[in-house]
Each structure stands twice: as structure tokens, then as C-alpha cells.
Nucleic acid binder design. Structure first.
Length: 115
DNA sequence: CTAATGACATTTG
DNA sequence: ACAAATGCCATTA
């Protein structure tokens, strides 16, 4: 049986490059209100991007299995946190074309609606 | 089983 | 607008 965390990852994988979603939205997609637990899931994310972990390739995970945890932000448009450093999160997002102004993201432009 | 922990969200001062 | 307090849920010790 799939754990709650794995469900989070499954949903998050739908978010395309250049878009972002929120912890709350993921919880809602799972018909739940456990956005707090979603944050924990991202923190423990075993499928993190190699680039996000500050290391080049070398792992055996397929890109289709990777979870874009850097595309998850707070519901108010702020960045939230990141296991391997918030700065890395910013860098990844910008490299995907997401504009970040004043440590915030315009949800009207970049929010990807689930479900 | 009970208590503690977070990459959150909302309400209140 | 900002900071603190409260509520929240799955996971882990």
C-alpha cells in the first residue's frame, strides 16, 4: 500500500517545468488537509533532483521518477523551505524560467492547478 | 499508546 | 505589514 508521502510525490510529478504549486494544493489534490505533512514529505523526499542536492549526476534514479520538490511553495507565494538550502531552490526555479521577485513568486502566472 | 516534530496555514494583537 | 499564537496531520521516537 502506498504511503501518504508517496501519494504526494505522485501528484507533484504532474507539475510541469516552469510552474509551481503549493503544499496546500497538494493536500487538496489528495482530498486531505495535511499540508503540514506534505511539507514533511518534501523534506524527506528520497527522489530529490541531483542538482538540488548540490551534486552532479551519479544516482541511479530515472528522471521520470524524480520529484520536483523545488516547485512547491507556500500558499501565499513565498518560497517556503528547502532541505539542501533555499538558495538552491531559487536557482533551480530560475533556471526553469520562474521569475522570483522579492523572494516571492507570482502565483497568478506560475501556479499549476491540480485536479 | 503517548509525545514530539515539521520545507504549513490562519487568525489575532 | 509584521510577529506571535493556535490549529493541523502524518510520521517517528
Amino acid at each position: 500500500m502506498k504511503s501518504f508521502y508517496e501519494k504526494c510525490y505522485a501528484v507533484l510529478r504532474k507539475v510541469p517545468k516552469g510552474k509551481v504549486t503549493t503544499y496546500k494544493e497538494i493536500a487538496r489534490a489528495l482530498n486531505s488537509k495535511a499540508y503540514r505533512a506534505v511539507g514533511t514529505a518534501m523534506n524527506k523526499n528520497p527522489y530529490a533532483f541531483p542538482a538540488a542536492r548540490g551534486r552532479a549526476g551519479g544516482d541511479s534514479l530515472k528522471s521520470s521518477d524524480l520529484v520536483p520538490c523545488h516547485r512547491v511553495i507556500n500558499s501565499n507565494g513565498e518560497l517556503g523551505g528547502f532541505a539542501s538550502g533555499l538558495k538552491n531552490k531559487i536557482k533551480l526555479l530560475k533556471s526553469e524560467g520562474v521569475e522570483i521577485s522579492n523572494n516571492k513568486i507570482d502565483l497568478k502566472k506560475y501556479f499549476f492547478r491540480l485536479r
